[in-house]
Structures are given as structure tokens and as C-alpha cells.
Amino acid sequence: MTAAVLDHDSADAHEEHPTSLRIDSRKLAIWTFIGSECLFFAALITTFVIYRNSHATGPGPKDVFEVPLVTAGTAVLLFSSFFVVMALNGAQEGNRKKLLLWLSLTVLCGCFFVGMQVYEFTGFMHKGMGYSTNLFATSFFTLTGFHGTHVAIGTLWLGTLLKDAYKGRIPPNKALNLEIAALYWHFVDVVWIIIFPVVYLMSLFAK
């Protein structure tokens, strides 16, 4: 949420001279926020790892996880990272067509991923795994739910930028508006790069 607030918000009081680090404050701020988020997900992942075998009642990882579905979701998220750098490239070159094409693909990927998660969660419910069925379920839903919320916020953010781009409001000198959103989006992607093996593959592999 802080990330979204940073968009467009920079004190222009210092316009007359460059900033101390010769970098826009918004970019430094989004990196600071990402650094902070590392600890946010660290606490969530730790909790999941500690509790992943606590499923004395109700289904465990082997009863519910579906590798093909999650692999598809992982691929979508990875590709969306690629799409958003291409969109950024387009914005920096002033190529509106390129920007619009890749950015819409990114937003589409975001929607698809959230849809995948909703589908996955619904399936788990049908298999008798509710939020509080057991600790494995609770910590799984908490971790992936927070990640999904991040994806949803990122999708909304990129969606507003898509609208801006459509109206021609992202010329090359404002490409930074997209760049900070892209940085956030990539971070959400790298978190999934950790979650996919640690939460899915390792839990399934464990004895």
C-alpha cells in the first residue's frame, strides 16, 4: 500500500537541483519498501516451514497440492516479469504501441495468476481444507493469501498505469512512474520464486 502512495508523490521543492544520490526519491523509496517486505515474507515463510507438517487432522500437502496448476501459475508470473520490462522499455523509448501491448499482457497475467489462486483455494476447500482445518492449512493460506494480495494490488496499480498509458500520460520523461510499479511487480515475482519450491515442491517431497 505504501508502494502505491509513492506513485506521483515527490516533493518538487528540490526541482532546481538534483537529489543527493542523483536518483529520483521515489525509486529509492520503493527499494526501501521492498527491503522491508523481505522481512515481511521472511516471517511468513518461516511460519509455514515450521508448521508445514502440522496436519494431524484434515488434509496435508500431498492430499491437496497440484503441481501442474501451480507450475502454470509460476510460469505466468515469470512471463509477466518479462512483459513488464518490455513495457518499460517501450515507455523509455517513447513507443506507445509497444508500451500498451506489453503492459496489457502484464495486467492480463496478473489477473490470470489471481484467478489461478482463487481456483486453487476453492479446490482446497472442496477437499476439506478450510482456513483453520489444521496449522498447515492456516499457515499456507496466510502466506499465499498475502502473496496473492500483493499480486492483486500490483495488478490494480499496473491497471491504472495502463489507463494512463492509453491516454498518453506516460511519455519517456515519466517512464519512472512505470519503473517503480515494475520494481514492485518483480519483487512479488521473486517472492513467488521462493514460495514455489519451498512451499509446494519441498512439502510434497518431505517424507
Binding site: L39, Y131, T138
Partner: peptide
Amino acid sequence: LLSFPVITIALVMLTADRNFHASF
């Protein structure tokens, strides 16, 4: 920046325990 995210998560879990039948 590096410590508050941890309490955020801990408080989320406490709230889940208290209000949403979790048992962290």
C-alpha cells in the same frame, strides 16, 4: 523497516487466532 514487518505478521497471526479460529 526491518523489524516492524515481523510484528505485523505476528499480529496478523494473533488476530487470526483470536478472530478466525486459527491456532498459530
